[in-house]
Design a protein around this nucleic acid. Structure first.
Lengths: 130, 130
DNA sequence: CTGTATCCCGTAAGATACTG
DNA sequence: CAGTATCTTACGGGATACAG
């Protein structure tokens, strides 16, 4: 949170954008979390998270490009594919921690300052439907 | 990054989703960063970030609902409106730090494993084609 | 089983013009 | 200056069928 105009902060802003380019979207962090718990095959992961094959396939490719999941073809019959977390995906832990912590903090802030009958309402206020 | 199935982690996942519901989108964190540097008026902010009035207006409203920016109408002529960060927006600092840090780390990881002439290419690889 | 190919929809985001 | 109104496009995401 420094001068947005300084070269140093241009980089910071850029780094932040890079991060969110890589991990944003509905599924990426969920996939990483799930695989961090235990490795899974394609369909297993699909069922576990409730994500359609098309989306899952795309997300896994992107994660693999960024070295955040490891894809292993197992020579079974029929062939199965095992997806696993990587050392690099473990480095996301602090970010995930910070995100969780802030989620709790924000909930307290918002829910705590509103009348009792509408807790957590503002938290998703920006999403009309869903 | 614990058991995704445990009750504790259900809450964690939820907290993470809450966080990203609030700060996701192309502009929210950029707005907060910019305002943390110095308070700005509406058009100033618009030009500074290169975001259209329509989008900026919407983003600022959402941020205000979540107590992440403070809107102050100044009694000038014509009327001007000053946007400022809040104490609550300052609590995002650790998350922003973590995101910046990971962005750098990831850049090193990806760029470092690629041929010198295409740095940062994989970082946005997932957005190129399609 | 592991994906791909199609088709569809809602929403984020941009461009531009306009109002108070 | 501070927004709002309209229009348009791009894309994320979902459903389903199907291919290897």
């Amino acid at each position: 949170m420094r001068d947005i105009h300084s070269p140093a902060c241009k980089s910071r802003q850029q780094a932040m954008r890079d991060t969110f380019d890589v991990i944003s979207g509905k599924w990426k962090l969920q996939i990483i979390s799930a695989l961090s718990e235990r490795t899974m095959r394609f369909n297993e992961l699909s069922r576990e998270l409730g994500v359609s094959p098309r989306i899952l396939s795309r997300e896994l490719k992107e994660l693999e490009i960024n070295k955040l999941v490891k894809r292993t073809v197992r020579d079974t019959r029929p062939v199965t594919v095992e997806y696993a977390p990587t050392p690099h995906s473990a480095t996301l832990a602090p970010l995930i921690e910070a995100a969780c912590d802030w989620g709790y903090l924000h909930y307290e802030k918002i829910a705590g300052t509103r009348r009792p009958h509408d807790p957590a309402e503002a938290i998703s206020a920006q999403r009309q439907d869903r």
